[in-house]
Design a protein around this nucleic acid. Structure first.
Lengths: 142, 142
DNA sequence: ATTTAGTTTAGAATTATTATAAATTAACAA
DNA sequence: TTGTTAATTTATAATAATTCTAAACTAAAT
């Protein structure tokens, strides 16, 4: 549960003015007990259905991208046509359920630390992400 | 270096007839010493520039997707707007160089085995993929 | 050879995302 | 406050990537 002033600083830190629309987006994203995963489409639908406001897609894209660039959101891309954002910005990995198309956060009880023995010379690691795809036993496996 | 008959069986196994266009695609993809990464665009350009043939995008998409579904190609998705295919279909992980936008295969000397301690109940693991993003030290990190 | 069903193709349709430009609004200085 | 400036919102247009369509073509099987 974050307060309005916290939304304002998230926006300011991302180089954005706190407008009515952006504060509404913050409320939907960050005014929760638990983090969650969403697509741009989910978010747009959520706002237009649950609040009787319509924020234009351009505004949604621009706000989400600024948050992503600033690190207030993480993007998890499953395939060229499925991309999710995660409000959990701590280092963690994911299960992806191919039956339900749902992402599930992992913690250290589920996936041990990834051991990177050698990195590319002259480069710094900016992130390490593991994606474990799962499906029901009866499903076709690749 | 694969022979024509091997391309034919790859195609047949993928439920596709071996046509002139598809065999050309096979040649470009599989008639090599080393595996490689490509985008659909790369592939289309490659074919139209290096051979003076033009295979329609529809055919390229259809063939690549059939190969992917059958497991003759792997897809590695970097972000919603960058997706690569890999002709290396063995289990392996990737570095992604954010400076050059290049994917680099990892082997076990670089990334140790990922330890999955607990899986989702009732589900089977279909793949485990690690993506390590790297960038030059001076680069902006998220 | 003939037939049948799968394939190729250009171009249309669709989808996701980004750009545009006019109307609106936040910020700030007077 | 109020007025000015610059950022923002918005609907819509533009772009890009992918999929669909239907007519012409081709492989496979009589």
């Amino acid at each position: 549960m974050l307060k309005n002033s916290e939304f304002v600083s998230k926006l300011r830190n991302s180089g954005l003015r706190p407008t009515k629309q952006r504060l509404k987006i913050c409320e939907v994203l960050f005014n929760r007990d638990k983090t969650f995963h969403f697509t741009i489409n989910d978010l747009a639908k959520n706002i237009s259905e649950n609040f009787n406001e319509k924020i234009s897609l351009a505004t949604i894209y621009n706000t989400i991208h600024a948050f992503k660039d600033k690190g207030y959101l993480k993007e998890i891309t499953i395939s060229s046509d499925k991309s999710y954002f995660d409000t959990n910005i701590t280092k963690h990995h994911h299960f992806y359920d191919e039956d339900t198309n749902l992402l599930i956060d992992c913690n250290d009880n589920e996936i041990g630390k990834v051991n990177i023995k050698n990195n590319i010379t002259g480069k710094k690691i900016s992130s390490v992400e593991v994606l474990v795809r799962v499906a029901s036993d009866t499903q076709n496996q690749n």
